[in-house]
Design a protein around this nucleic acid. Structure first.
Lengths: 254, 254
DNA sequence: ATTATGTAGACCGACGGTCGGTCTACAACT
DNA sequence: AGTTGTAGACCGACCGTCGGTCTACATAAT
């Protein structure tokens, strides 16, 4: 393996990069690996090979493998939130804001069902418990204040109803997020299971989540939509196509 | 204590036990260690020392450390469920069944606040993500069918209301469990934080959970109680006392 | 020139897991 | 009763992998 052409300079080249860039490279490479092989199944050496750096360099940027995970999770969550932030500042009703926030995150996913499915499958595998839990926790932690604000606003306007006179809106936001993540988990397992009824079950999961939220906020039935009908149709179509070619390669009818 | 009188004996004695008993011993010892030091922080050698067996023996009983964890979780969850099963068979209204099921699990906890607090603290530490998630998943998985039945019964009697005409009761059960576990998580963090307002916040968490469930099932406000008032008082009292003697504990080593 | 920063990879100890083999209880056959 | 065969409980030395440390050195900054 080692190709020593000459005694001089047979060592690895020394490449120096802007620290920020390098750090980012490491995180990116790690993310790809974690999602494809799982966090626990990805030794640091894999990350080193992927980035072409040495152990020392890695530990120059990260205190530990866990710290790398934390930073990565942070980036993922931050990216997910930025979308919401914009919506919150729009001059629309709180209900609209809620709708659009969820629709938005759903939309991103439809544009590349493949990626979404892959991510879910990766996240919900055994070897990725830590990764998954941390991402979920981070998302809850980061989104709750935003949704809390929206809900607070809605309560003041009389659109939503508190659970209890002296209850903070954040509690409701937390409950909603808990349900949302539970739904995400169910959907992930659906994807993994290769169930032929994926599309239908997915639709149900979403519907029940919506209904639950409506009840929690005391909304009119049917006023909370996390997915636009046409988006849903796209998803279902995409999924049916997928399940169709499980064994019949190259089949195109439907 | 063991009847091993050998102090001078340098060589290990060979003790043969009924496999079931031995396996149980291992699980018990492991459980104690996992809860006190964390799953990841407990090397198998610790379990070996605690049980007085050798590596080979351990791997004679378990395929891997993870398999041990699974079996342990299974036992914990099974124990937690047995309580509920009895309640379900009682000739009382579905709402009563729900109430009692939750009260019951709460009651167990009050009887030994210490243990409960310790367990929570242990479960929700970093090193125990895997342990925690697996327990929670197992509990959801095992309880949902039961609660699903109760809810189904309640729906038929007109006591609860479906989210949607063709919705299975299990979905509601899942939502409730998702909220319950989220509450558990919040409470755990409360315990860990040593917040002086533990008691009050705990009460709130419970209240909001109850209110959320009432809305989900379309119940009369105040009809769902996971804790009896007197139990709650006991808990609060116990917790206030605790927060006083934070470091006064007279720990001694041996 | 000296210091700070980035890079490198040999090295280490701990840990999960394997393996060859020993010991014991007990059934089956003299 | 004594002998032998066998399953499986038990042992601990050993191994490979992995996260993390350490020292050396190159380059940039001062």
């Amino acid at each position: 393996m080692k190709n020593e052409t000459s005694k001089v300079n047979s060592k690895k080249e020394r490449i120096i990069k802007d620290p920020e860039i390098r750090k980012n490279e490491i995180i990116q490479a790690a993310q790809k690996l974690f999602f494809s092989q799982g966090y626990e199944n990805t030794p640091i050496t894999d990350i080193l090979h992927a980035t072409g750096i040495a152990k020392g360099t890695f530990y120059h940027y990260f205190k530990s493998k866990d710290e790398l995970l934390s930073e990565m999770v942070n980036m993922v969550a931050t990216a997910a939130i930025q979308q919401i932030q914009k919506i919150i500042e729009m001059p629309i009703t709180p209900l609209e804001k809620l709708n659009r926030s969820f629709q938005n995150s759903q939309n991103i996913k439809v544009e590349n069902l493949e990626t979404m499915k892959a991510s879910y499958e990766a996240l919900y595998k055994e070897e990725n418990i830590k990764l998954r839990v941390k991402i979920n926790e981070q998302i809850i932690q980061d989104t709750v204040p935003f949704f809390g604000n929206i809900i607070e606003e809605g309560i003041k306007l009389g659109d939503f109803k508190r659970l209890d006179p002296d209850q903070e809106a954040d509690s409701l936001a937390e409950a909603i997020m808990a349900l949302a993540i539970h739904m995400g988990s169910k959907n992930a397992h659906l994807f993994i299971s290769e169930d032929p009824d994926i599309a239908k079950k997915l639709e149900k999961n979403i519907l029940y989540f919506e209904k639950s939220v409506e009840r929690l906020l005391d909304l009119q039935p049917g006023s909370f939509h996390t997915v636009e009908p046409k988006t849903l149709k796209l998803m279902i179509k995409g999924l049916s196509k997928k399940s169709g070619n499980k064994q019949i390669e190259g089949e195109h009818n439907d």
